[in-house]
Structure formats: structure tokens, C-alpha cells
Design a protein around this nucleic acid. Structure first.
Length: 280
DNA sequence: CGGCAAACCTGCGAGC
DNA sequence: TGCTCGCAGGTTTGCC
């Protein structure tokens, strides 16, 4: 479900509500999500104070005052829902619920259970198995045209598949890959190794701007994503291609002479949306 | 190395 | 109304 902009938006909402608060109770309603939940999870969190909420790729990182870090991945359908009534009983698909010392309630809700939680120690976080192989943050200084070009060199896979690979760059998902490729004018079908330096540069710029704009809009709300506040994000109204098969390409607006509009194709078993006329 | 399908699981909308 | 089908923001695994 959520890609980097949605996770970033959720983190910001959680930070406002959780930083500085003590967890006075944690309830767990099932033993597993995509993976087993950590052994003794409620006991290891109860009584701890939340120091900061951070993010790495699509992981929410809850830093606690004993140097424990709770790592949360939302999978496709996971949500972190903030409430203010500790008496409300858990809803359908609420799997873990956190209660704070100021009567706050944060519910991890995940219908499909593709999400996961794990625990780490602050000092071992970067080498944790879930994070160790992740590529650079696309909005960080380590992500630039030179590095991307180096990562693409020799790759005989489509640029679409490579951008979804979290070890190349961490945080993009199916929506923002399509949007970034559109903005850079590069076809999703191109082999990664075929991009030249100028195209890598355009792609880096497109990735950074689309993510930045999406964060500013509070993410994209399709089926079930909402911010922790319950509000929807609104970047979906700015999609150029995602989910717009058959509609006119916003970049070909003055050329109505049958460019075919936005096409939907399937790559690596996932939908890709693009304009074959504009993306080469 | 890379493509491809399936797996994990539930919900929703479309079409009959 | 109720059924089946296809689709969904992610990631992993196994097979060719």
C-alpha cells in the first residue's frame, strides 16, 4: 500500500502524537503478520517512552528510551490509526494496539497482513537483516545521477523493475515509479543499462520532485490509505499516468491526433502505466 | 543474472 | 441478491 510519501506522512502524524509519550499498555491480538511478531512484544514495549519516530525506506522506526527500535512495515494495506478513546474495543483487523500515558491510542490495522513488525537495538539497526541491503534514500544526498548510473550499469532488466528493487533505491513503489518515469520521459520498457548519463540525471530529478510533491500533499489515497489523523492524502489527483489507462496523456494535450493516451501494461506481474508517445 | 508465477491475505467493484 | 473474476500501494521464494 504505502510507498515512501505515505509512510513519511504517517511518521509525521505519529511523531506529533507519540514522541515524548510513554507506552502504558500494548495489546497484541494475533501471533503473526507476514512474519511472526517478535517474542514478548507487548512486554518489551510497555513502560518505554517514545523518543523519536523515524523512517528508513518504507519502514516506520519507533525509537524507545531503552535504545530499542520498533520497526513497522505496512505492507499493502497496513494503517496506523490514531484515536483518543482507550475504551474503544479493537476493530476488525486491528492486530496491535498501543496506549500512551495521555490516553492516546494508536491502532495497527492491516486487513491483508502483508505488514510486519520487528525489534532491533539502536546500534544494530543499520545492519538489521530487514535494512542492511536497502539502497540509498531517494531524498538523501547519497542518491544522485552518478550513483544511479553506476547501479544501472550492466543491468539487463527493465528500468521499471530496477526502480522497484529496494536495493537500488529504497522507498519507491508501483505508483511513484510510473509517475517518475513519465516525468523523465523514459519508457518503463527500456533496459536499465541502456540509460545514458543525461537520462539518469533526469530520472533522479523526477524521482526527487515527485516524492517531494507527494509528501507535501500528504501522500496518495486510493483504496484504504489515510494519514494517521484519518484524513486522506490528495496526491492521487496529480497522477499523470497511474491508474489512467485510456485517458489522454497530460503531456500530449495539444496533440489530440490519436497518440493513444495512457497505456497499461504488465511488467513483473505488476501494472505499469505510461505514454508510449512521450516516453522513449 | 533475470523473467515469471505464485505465495502470503482480505476486500472491493464489475459483470453475469 | 449472490456468485466469480480480476485487481490492489509489497516482498519473498522457487522454478526455468
Amino acid at each position: 500500500m504505502p510507498e515512501l510519501p505515505e509512510v513519511e506522512t504517517i511518521c509525521r502524524g505519529l511523531a506529533l502524537r507519540m514522541e515524548g509519550r510513554r507506552l502504558i499498555r500494548v495489546e497484541q491480538y494475533r501471533p503473526d503478520l507476514r512474519l511472526p511478531l517478535p517474542e514478548g512484544l507487548p512486554g518489551r514495549l510497555t513502560g518505554r517512552r517514545v523518543v523519536t519516530i523515524g523512517r528508513r525506506a518504507k519502514y516506520i522506526l519507533v525509537h524507545l528510551d531503552d535504545a530499542t527500535v520498533l520497526m513497522i512495515h505496512l505492507g499493502m494495506s497496513g494503517r496506523m490509526v490514531i484515536g483518543d478513546d482507550p475504551e474503544t474495543p479493537p476493530g476488525r483487523h486491528d492486530h496491535v494496539v498501543f496506549f500512551t500515558d495521555d490516553r492516546g491510542v494508536i491502532r495497527f490495522n492491516d486487513a491483508r497482513r502483508f505488514g510486519l513488525m520487528a525489534l532491533s537495538h539502536r546500534d544494530a539497526l543499520d545492519s538489521h537483516a530487514l535494512l542492511a541491503d536497502l539502497g540509498p534514500e531517494p531524498l538523501g544526498n547519497d542518491f544522485n545521477a552518478l550513483r544511479l548510473a553506476a547501479a544501472l550499469a550492466g543491468r539487463q532488466r527493465s528500468i521499471k523493475a530496477v526502480l522497484l528493487d529496494q536495493t537500488i533505491v529504497a522507498g519507491l513503489g508501483n505508483i511513484y515509479v510510473s509517475e517518475a518515469l513519465f516525468r523523465s520521459g523514459i519508457s518503463p520498457l527500456r533496459l536499465a543499462a541502456s540509460l545514458d548519463a543525461a537520462e539518469a540525471e533526469r530520472l533522479v530529478t523526477a524521482i526527487r520532485t515527485v516524492l517531494t510533491e507527494a509528501i507535501a500533499a500528504g501522500g496518495s489515497s486510493l483504496r484504504d490509505y489515510v494519514q494517521s489523523s484519518g484524513e486522506a492524502g490528495y496526491f492521487q489527483h496529480q497522477f499523470a499516468v497511474y491508474g489512467r489507462a485510456g485517458q489522454p496523456c497530460p503531456g500530449c494535450c495539444c496533440d489530440s491526433a490519436g497518440t493513444g493516451g495512457i497505456q497499461r501494461i504488465v511488467q513483473n506481474n505488476r501494472s505499469t502505466f505510461f505514454c508510449p508517445h512521450r516516453q522513449r
